[in-house]
């Protein structure tokens, strides 16, 4: 099996602050890979470095066998798309859903826009009724569905997910997670998903990396984690925390 994303010795520095300190990982094609950590662990920075939104100071990123340079070309964005954490901030406030979905098609010169937009809305379970609404006329879950539709409309092979459900209610979270699993199965997508919640990552991913302070703590399979076969104390702490409060 080939690798979809290979990251080697990645360093990201913001104003002398080392957000990522030499992180390496390999995501196989068609795999769902999770990054778990608390705030400041560098997990979101890693995603942003892959998309070109965070400056890489050293290390390499290879996507679908192509080594990435400083800038990303249009072809890259047809392969890799991202869903942001906050559905309230990731949709343009003055554009209808229709306009939001049309934009990527216009940039990449797709001709059959009408059909694609309708199909994309159907795929994320929104349907035509939502096509001409503005973001403020949508609930958080509906917004995140629009964001997913926008990411899928260019038919990428890799989807980067930055805490896609952490701003949503638990019941809506379940719906969005199910949707993500469904589109992944249907389109044979590769997922790289970031979350602070171990339960979500073990639910969604086959393999995961635990991160802390810009470094990798350990790499595990989901079944290792479920069986509590972990080496690092930090991971054990996280596991304990995810089980809720225990009175001493």
């Amino acid at each position: 099996m080939t690798a979809a994303i290979v990251v080697e010795g990645l360093e990201v520095v913001f104003d002398r602050f080392r957000a990522l300190k030499g992180v390496s990982l390999e995501v196989r094609e068609g795999e769902s890979y999770g990054l778990v950590g608390e705030s400041g662990s560098g997990k979101s920075t890693l995603l942003r470095a892959i998309t070109g939104l965070a400056p890489v100071s050293s290390g390499t990123i290879t996507v679908n066998g192509k080594r990435l340079g400083k800038s990303r070309d249009r072809a890259f964005y047809r392969e890799v798309q991202m869903v942001f954490q906050d559905p309230y901030g990731s949709l343009h406030p003055r554009q209808t859903v229709d306009r939001l979905l049309q934009e990527p098609l216009a940039i990449h010169g797709f001709a059959d826009g009408e059909r694609r937009i309708e199909r994309a809305l159907d795929e994320v379970g929104l349907g035509k009724g939502f096509r001409f609404r503005y973001a403020h006329q949508l609930s958080g879950g509906q917004r995140q569905r629009v964001a997913i539709a926008r990411a899928l409309i260019l038919e990428p092979s890799i989807l980067l997910l930055d805490e896609p459900t952490s701003a949503l209610d638990a019941s809506v979270q379940a719906e969005v997670l199910n949707l993500l699993e469904e589109v992944r199965r249907r389109r044979k997508l590769t997922f790289l998903m970031v979350s602070h919640d171990l339960a979500i990552i073990t639910h969604m991913c086959e393999r995961l990396m635990v991160m802390q302070n810009g470094e990798a703590v350990e790499t595990l399979t989901a079944s290792q984690l479920i069986g509590h076969r972990v080496d690092a104390d930090y991971t054990r702490n996280l596991l304990r925390a995810s089980e809720g409060f225990v009175r001493a």
């Binding site: 019941s171 339960a199 639910h203 969604m204 479920i226």
Partner: peptide
């Protein structure tokens, strides 16, 4: 509807 470690349910009940 919340995912739990050690309880595989795909899809999650909504």
């Amino acid at each position: 509807c919340m995912p739990r470690i050690g309880f595989e349910r795909h899809p999650l009940p909504v």
